[in-house]
């Protein structure tokens, strides 16, 4: 190849292939080490449990189904009902925060400020322990769901508000120019688009909720952590039972994260713009 030549010599095609091959190898090497790291840690943990702590098979066969089978259902039930309640609170809260009415707006901002300014555990205890003092006695499960929904609703209020505001004003103008009322514009045009915008955030909150739902064990809701703790104390095997619970939470989180990623990918595909 002579200097200054504008044509590429025949080695050019091979050069591209060589670069691609080297990049591919680098990727494979990176992934291999990544997986090895994970596997090493997991193996070390397993060895620690088997040889240092010891696996008591009778204990596991006796209690495994009690902890996992009974616990998962209640954990998921609490999480789903609480997140549904939170969505309801957040929708009302966001409407309040966007309202031009100073009273609605004030109510909503007070709610958000109060809830975000106090610990979740305190809120759970308050509903469970303090309300009976006023003569209101609710079952533990209901107390837990109310507290979780109330708390998450406040955080989600701000997310929903941002989601509604992220819908371009041109959408409202188009709806109104077609004669839609304010209400129809909101329910048919703005809300569906805002919902798509906040869906990833709802997914994240649901995954957090799976874990925060364990806080209701403190008021005696017999979910996953409550059972693990009970058995662990009774049999002096807290390492084993808590690790079982941890593994279950972890697997659930990974599972729902995967579902969420798939969902987002699908929605992104539907939205992908073709250049004009």
């Amino acid at each position: 190849m002579s200097i200054g030549s504008s044509t590429v010599d025949q080695g050019g095609a091979d050069l591209g292939a060589l670069i691609r091959e080297s990049e591919r190898r680098r990727t494979i090497r990176w992934r291999t080490w990544f997986v090895i790291t994970w596997m090493t840690i997991l193996t070390a943990m397993t060895l620690f449990i088997v040889f240092i702590v010891g696996v008591d098979e009778t204990l596991i066969t006796k209690y495994f189904w009690y902890i996992v089978g009974g616990g998962i259902g209640l954990t998921i039930f609490v999480s789903i009902t609480s997140i549904a309640l939170a969505i309801l609170f957040a929708t009302l809260g966001a409407l309040g925060r966007l309202s031009r009415n100073p009273i609605f707006n004030g109510l909503a901002s007070f709610y958000v400020s109060l809830v975000r300014g106090t610990p979740l555990l305190l809120q759970i205890l308050f509903i469970y322990l303090a309300l009976p003092q006023l003569g209101i006695v609710l079952p533990e499960l209901l107390c837990g769901i109310l507290a979780l929904g109330f708390n998450y609703g406040a955080y989600m209020t701000e997310v929903f508000r941002a989601g509604i505001q992220a819908v371009p004003p041109g959408q409202t103008e188009a709806a109104q120019s077609l004669g839609m009322t304010g209400r129809t514009t909101f329910t048919k045009i703005v809300l569906p688009q805002a919902f798509r915008i906040v869906l990833p955030a709802i997914g994240n909150d649901f995954i957090s909720m799976l874990k925060d739902s364990s806080l209701v064990s403190t008021i005696g809701v017999q979910e996953l952590l409550w059972r693990a703790r009970l058995v662990g104390t009774k049999e002096f095997a807290a390492i084993q039972t808590l690790l079982i619970a941890a593994a279950v939470y972890w697997v659930m989180t990974i599972g729902f994260s995967y579902v969420q990623a798939r969902l987002e990918k699908r929605m992104a595909q539907g939205d992908r713009a073709v250049s004009r």
Partner: peptide, 20 residues
């Protein structure tokens, strides 16, 4: 105002189609 708008539909510079 809403009644008036029923008599006049608008086409916008930025289209403003409903993406959903």
């Amino acid at each position: 105002i809403r009644q008036l708008r029923l008599n006049a539909s608008m086409v916008f510079q930025e289209f403003n189609l409903f993406p959903h």
